[in-house]
Design a protein around this nucleic acid. Structure first.
Lengths: 178, 178
DNA sequence: CTAATTCAGTTGCATAATGCAACCATAAAG
DNA sequence: CTTTATGGTTGCATTATGCAACTGAATTAG
């Protein structure tokens, strides 16, 4: 009875969790984004067990989020660096940090962000890639994308364009959208 | 030897994980954002064990992310709804979904987002709350905020303003920033 | 009127996942 | 020559997770 994997779900959120959803993984990415690279530094900063740390780092490497780079030959030593795929998780980490700042930081944000190019403290405002207006949750409507498979079992009217007439793009399958 | 808690870390990312970092929690929020409200619907859509589901829902309620609302009196039944605190996690979920779309969706995004007010498929562009320019990770500089405590053990030059002269805002403690 | 179904869980048990501490190995430092 | 720094591995104890069976109240089917 191993822990159930999210890999079979046809959902990008689930796929993201499959990569960074384990305990500690997000904090490793956070620290890596701050510039931490060495096994011992991760270990000391986080207070994580060494076996778990090794396991997480290897998983992140397997999934292409980090890679090992040799920084010493005599005692053969490697540092752990983020790939572009890993660095692109900064939006996820930043969204989490800002949510935590708003709801779980009674003494105020422990860390703030300065936008170098304008020199001011900054938060991340989400705007629409098409019209540039600020995005609000209620303005968003989920629709099936090119990778969609089935749409049954979804709450009614979330996908009003699909009447389940059998003409779903990718045909029938045992997979589920979202 | 229980699973180590992140609660003692003075970091908003860790606090967020403390609320939604457990296995399944993020998928529950995702489905709740899609309009799923009933115990059985979560169970069927996710394939989660009922005991885990009950435990996660109660945790989310304890942390103020969801609440129970009675929708039937005769068989006393409740639905699970997101609070504003919970709905505000949409940025985190969306950032995860877009990352998954980019790196873990070989057949294309299973779900896309339409921006109702402009009518087009949209992605979330992060812009600076001060200058409105698009934010890039390399343009961001982490600085201690009002809730900062200690800054030792941090990678050098990440907090160049603090020379650890003992005048840190909140004084000495065993806590660590970030 | 009885049986099956729906909804919302709870309980028991087996198997992973996690945490701790001890240990290993190389090289540099004192 | 012993200690320290770095980067792990191994063993064992404790949690967390998953599965299936069960409870219980009310509604629906036959």
């Amino acid at each position: 009875m191993e822990r159930k994997s999210f890999a079979a779900m046809n959902c990008s959120v689930a796929q993201c969790l499959e990569v960074v959803g384990e305990w500690w993984s997000v904090l490793l990415i956070r620290d890596a984004l701050l510039g931490v690279t060495k096994f011992d530094d991760f270990w000391r900063r986080l207070g994580i067990s060494k076996n778990i740390l090794a396991s997480r780092l290897n998983h992140l490497i397997d999934r292409g989020v980090m890679y090992k780079s040799q920084y010493s030959t005599k005692p053969e030593r490697y540092e752990y660096l983020l790939t572009e795929k890993g660095r692109d998780l900064w939006t996820v980490i930043t969204a989490m940090r800002e949510w935590g700042d708003r709801y779980e930081a009674p003494n105020g944000p422990p860390v703030e962000v300065e936008h170098r190019s304008c020199g001011h403290i900054s938060t991340m405002i989400p705007v629409c890639s098409h019209c540039g207006e600020r995005l609000e949750w209620r303005e968003l409507k989920m629709v099936p994308g090119p990778g969609a498979t089935e749409v049954d079992l979804l709450p009614k009217d979330l996908f009003p364009n699909s009447h389940d007439d059998g003409t779903t793009k990718a045909g029938r399958s045992d997979r589920r959208v979202v």
